[in-house]
């Protein structure tokens, strides 16, 4: 029995320890918001936060998550909510599939850098592929989220 804490909730699951967190989260626990895109940490669709660190869940085993705080797109945080609002204002998604990972990567960026520059965004967001090509909107929405946050203070 393995115990995982996801979005503040505790889950006890039975599974092999080498199963990537992605599949434990999706297939065993049933939180399907985190997506499979490549399986080799190349596209970022499976991005989650583990103890606040941006992680490609397709390439980390379940055992790595034991005793740590896991955060997925089903969760909520102050920065994620500002980003969601900005994503909405900017009508960012097309097919939407990669956007879970994009939002988690952007959350991680804002958690680390209060006011990111374009260069910061390039660096933080280039692990996340959007085949629909919504990059310019994502960039704009991240800047917008910062403004929304500043307006709220």
């Amino acid at each position: 029995m393995i115990s995982l804490s996801i979005n503040g909730k505790s889950y006890s699951i039975e599974t092999q320890e080498d199963m990537p967190l992605l599949w434990a989260i999706r297939d065993i626990i049933g939180l399907t918001g985190t997506k499979f895109g490549c399986g080799v940490a190349q596209c970022g669709a499976c991005s989650i936060l583990i103890d606040g660190t941006l992680t490609k869940s397709c390439s980390m085993p379940v055992s790595y998550g034991i005793g740590k705080q896991i955060f997925t797109i089903e969760g909520s945080s102050s920065n994620l909510e500002f980003l969601r609002k900005a994503w909405n204002d900017g009508n960012v998604p097309q097919c939407g599939y990669c956007q879970s990972g994009q939002l988690i990567a952007a959350t991680s960026l804002l958690d680390k850098i209060e006011i990111p520059t374009d260069e910061d965004i390039d660096k933080a967001m280039s692990d996340n592929i959007c085949r629909c090509g919504t990059y310019t909107r994502i960039r704009k929405a991240i800047h917008e989220a910062v403004e929304l946050k500043n307006d709220a203070i």
Binding site: E74, R84, W87, N88, N91, P93, G96, Q99
Partner: peptide, 18 residues
């Protein structure tokens, strides 16, 4: 705006794989 934005930004849109 897309009528599905809320689902897209909360991981609640059901794709085939979900």
């Amino acid at each position: 705006k897309s009528i599905d934005l809320k689902d897209f930004t909360h991981g609640t849109a059901t794709y085939g794989i979900d």
